[in-house]
């Protein structure tokens, strides 16, 4: 393990809390709405969070370096629109899939380029590109919706392995396993955490920081493109409201999962569990026929609470004070 014995116990507790929360929620919903205990419903939980999930996994990398990407949702939306447009005009599925993935990647690369090469803080950069991507997707699609994708494509994302296990969950788990191994056991994770704590020191270790930054934003872009496909495979309609509040769900999952908004400390596994928790909430709210707004309201509250809880525990662990903060660059923006 890469952390001290002391820290492991804290982290395990955090993940323990998350797991407890997960089961607590399932049981609560089950008691309110007994249908929730049905295996099919629980499996559905796994299916509905795939797209948000892969983006949250990629976002964990970025937040670990004390960056952030607010544009994720609209990147996904624009990629979905591009998919719809390309497919409906060419009827070539492979081309459309490639176009969607490429679109996501390029947008992510664009973010990464600005973050790495200029001094504009990531929050501001991606706030601006968030509006930009949203605007472009609206310009492209107008008020149109794209649908009528072939059954084969849908099967890619709605197939159930052995008739039970949703394939979206398998994709999500696969991405999780790859990203987690690089994060927890790889050189990349080491550098990401180092950058979150003290970027200059990592630079003085001969690490090419700019490349890493461009790389992780591009990776997240690619995952957004993939998330667009997952979304379309599941819901089959490309329209210009797909991206609303997605960035916010993604960031909530990452922070709830135990990654610090100040960088340095993070956990892909925490994000994984947090995504499941959010999935349970979403499904539970749907079953209780509560609106999407209540779901978002709950998430907003969770996000603020996890920020506060993290700030308080971080202070206690004294991670913040031992960390050399960059002067002059306002950390709050």
């Amino acid at each position: 393990m890469s952390m001290t014995g002391n820290k492991i116990s804290i982290k395990l507790t955090h993940q323990g809390v998350l797991v407890t929360l997960l089961f607590g929620l399932i049981i609560t919903f089950g008691l309110i709405e007994p249908v929730f205990f049905r295996p099919s419903v629980l499996l559905d939980v796994m299916a509905i969070m795939g797209d948000v999930g892969v983006m949250a996994l990629g976002m964990t990398y970025i937040i670990t370096t004390s960056g952030v990407d607010l544009s994720v949702g609209y990147n996904q939306q624009l990629s979905a629109v591009v998919f719809g447009m390309v497919y409906l005009s060419t009827r070539n599925l492979a081309l459309a899939i490639a176009a969607a993935l490429l679109c996501g990647t390029v947008l992510g690369f664009f973010n990464g380029l600005i973050v790495a090469k200029t001094k504009i803080p990531p929050l501001v950069t991606t706030l601006a590109t968030m509006y930009l991507f949203r605007g472009i997707s609206m310009i492209l699609a107008g008020s149109m919706t794209y649908s009528g994708f072939p059954q084969g494509f849908r099967l890619f994302f709605t197939y159930r392995l052995f008739g039970v296990l949703p394939i979206q969950f398998i994709y999500f788990t696969a991405v999780f396993l790859i990203l987690d191994s690089l994060y927890s056991y790889g050189a990349l994770g080491r550098n990401l955490k180092g950058m979150g704590f003290n970027e200059e020191s990592v630079h003085f270790s001969g690490v090419k920081i700019q490349k890493i930054k461009i790389g992780i934003y591009t990776l997240l872009g690619l995952l957004c493109g993939f998330a667009a496909l997952m979304y379309l495979g599941r819901l089959s309609v490309a329209k210009t409201s797909i991206g609303d509040w997605i960035n916010f769900q993604v960031i909530t999952a990452v922070l709830l999962g135990g990654t610090s908004i100040n960088g340095g400390v993070g956990s892909i596994r925490g994000t994984f569990i947090a995504i499941l928790i959010i999935g349970v909430l979403k499904k539970g709210y749907t079953l209780m026929s509560l609106s999407g707004n209540i779901f978002n309201f709950t998430l907003g509250t969770i996000l603020i609470l996890s920020l506060i809880v993290f700030a308080v525990t971080e202070e206690r662990k004294n991670v913040v004070s031992s960390k050399i903060r960059k002067t002059n660059i306002p950390t709050r923006v």
């Binding site: 020191s201 003085f204 340095g264």
Partner: peptide
């Protein structure tokens, strides 16, 4: 060493 040499919150090994 605190600013450029080391990443203080990380371990010896790292």
């Amino acid at each position: 060493r605190q600013r450029y040499g080391l990443v203080l919150p990380m371990t010896l090994k790292e």
